[in-house]
Amino acid sequence: MPPLLQVENLRTYFHTPRGIAKAVDGVSFQVEQGKTLAIVGESGCGKSITALSLLQLVPEPAGYIEGGRILFEGRDLLDLTWDQMRRVRGDDIAMIFQEPMTSLNPTFTIGYQLVEAMTMHGKFTGAQARQRAKDLLARVGLQDPAQALRQYPHELSGGMRQRVMIAIALSNEPKLLIADEPTTALDVTVQAQILALIRDLQREQNMGVLLITHDLGIVAETSEEVAVMYAGQIVEYGPTSAIFHEPRHPYARGLFASLPARGRRGQDLATLEGIVPPPTAWPPACRFEPRCAYRWDTCAQVPPKYHPADSDRPVRCHLYDPEIADRPARGAAPIAKEPVAPDPTVEAAR
């Protein structure tokens, strides 16, 4: 049986005044039914565009999907017509967004927006949809669902709005939920509630979940697998526990080292130097090379290889490529500066 979602070599580009921006450049991953894959990375690395590409909601006309395959239950979503794709959205695949403050239409009631999501796909008629809307709002934890149906988004708090967004997303019992930074804009206490809610609902409906986040703290407890993204590419992929215990790619090491951990109490938190370069000007060979603490000459000349098929822990780095002759021993002292030692005891500090 094919995985629920299998993405192969997805490329999403943007026309910009400064040339073509390769925001997503050859990304492959898969999401199993009932499982969660987290895509992590700094802002600007292409996570959100990846998520939007799956539903073909990339801002047009600047953005376009250049190539690749998005296999959902075995059929390629990129082959669908405009209207077929519309029917997939919100029905088979639903999405929740980062900004609960602006993601709901301010001029329509909550009830209208919820019912619209259901009647759109013809699964429910008006009266059924209204009853179900009330049930859903109760399920996502709103105190007074009947009243909430009549309210406008501005009358609800951020956390309540995100619950409404989840209710909308789940209204057609999707098989896949894409959650793009679902908790970033919320208070810490509300974050935990929302995550717990998503997890419970996932279990109830046996959904696949694709979680997009830059917050490593929430990855450990929500996802089975992690893909680390940098500059439009996946640089490391593997089971959550493995990656948390031993991040391999220098970027992933840096990312995880910047988490506070019990083992390093009293030390300064490590930080990654620099920022993600603009997508119109990715470095030609290894895209992390200018920021990498382990780089050597080859890194600026030969693009590192990445073989997701060959290994269950693929890494896009010369350090792990046996074909690269002049690579230093793994974990050897970085050439440029202090090593960011991989810490086996790292756990997401809560």
Binding site: L52, L55, L57, P59, W82, D83, R86, R87, V88, R89, G90, D91, A94, M95, F97, E99, T102, S103, L104, N105, P106, T107, F108, E116, A117, M120, H121, M165, I168
Partner: peptide
């Protein structure tokens, strides 16, 4: 058209014409 709620409507499966005539126009 560039607001977030338009993206939400599209993600719900609302067609482009309905997005424009219902969601965008009312705002």
């Amino acid at each position: 058209i560039n607001q977030d709620y338009v993206r939400t409507a599209r993600a719900k499966g609302v067609g482009e014409r309905a997005v424009l005539l219902r969601h965008v126009l009312k705002n």
